[in-house]
Simulated scan of single mutants.
Amino acid sequence: MAIMRRFLRLAGCVVAAALATSSCGSGHHESASATHPARSATPSPFPSSDSATSDPHGPSVHRAPTISPDGITALVSGASVEGDAIYPIPGGIKAGKTLAIAINCQGPGRLTVQVKPTSASFPLLCEKGRVLPTMNEIHMAVNHSTSSLHFASEPGVTWSFAVGWDPDPPKQQ
Rank of each mutant, 00 (worst) to 15 (best):
V131H: 13
F122I: 00
K94W: 11
K128M: 11
V115C: 09
L125V: 09
G92I: 05
C126Q: 12
P45T: 13
K97L: 00
T42I: 09
I101S: 02
I93R: 07
R63S: 02
S147G: 15
K94Q: 09
S145P: 05
R39S: 03
S119N: 11
P155Q: 06
I72E: 03
V113W: 01
T146S: 13
T146M: 09
P117V: 07
S121I: 05
N104H: 14
S68D: 10
A74E: 01
S23I: 03
A120T: 00
K116I: 03
Q106P: 12
M135Y: 07
Q114Y: 07
H29M: 11
A32N: 09
S80W: 11
G109S: 10
T112S: 04
Y87D: 14
C126E: 10
P155E: 08
V157L: 04
F151H: 09
G91C: 08
V113N: 01
S31D: 10
A100D: 03
S26P: 04
V61P: 12
V157Y: 02
E127V: 14
K97Y: 06
G83N: 07
I101R: 01
I93K: 06
A74P: 07
G25N: 14
V142L: 11
L75Y: 07
E127M: 14
L132W: 11
G156V: 02
Q106W: 07
S147A: 15
A102T: 11
H150P: 00
G58D: 07
C126L: 11
I86H: 02
E154I: 01
P43T: 04
F122M: 01
H62L: 13
T35G: 14
F122A: 02
A34M: 11
N104S: 13
S49C: 10
L125Q: 14
L111H: 03
G96E: 04
P65E: 12
N104Y: 10
A152T: 13
C24N: 09
G71S: 08
P155I: 11
V131I: 13
S60F: 12
P45W: 05
G91S: 09
S31A: 15
G78A: 04
C24P: 09
P155L: 08
A34Q: 15
A152Q: 12
S44P: 12
A52G: 09
H62G: 03
V115H: 08
S44E: 08
A41L: 14
Q114V: 04
P43H: 11
R39I: 02
T146A: 13
L75C: 02
V81L: 11
K97A: 03
I67G: 01
E137G: 02
C105Q: 12
L132N: 15
I138V: 15
G156T: 04
N143F: 02
T21F: 03
G27T: 12
E137V: 00
F122S: 01
H36V: 14
S23W: 01
A152H: 06
L111R: 01
L99P: 00
V61Y: 03
A64F: 09
P117I: 06
Y87P: 00
P65R: 05
P88F: 07
V142H: 14
Q106S: 15
G27E: 07
T35H: 06
I86C: 01
P133W: 15
I86Q: 04
A52F: 10
K97P: 00
E154T: 10
G92V: 04
G83P: 05
T98K: 06
P69F: 11
H62D: 13
E154Y: 02
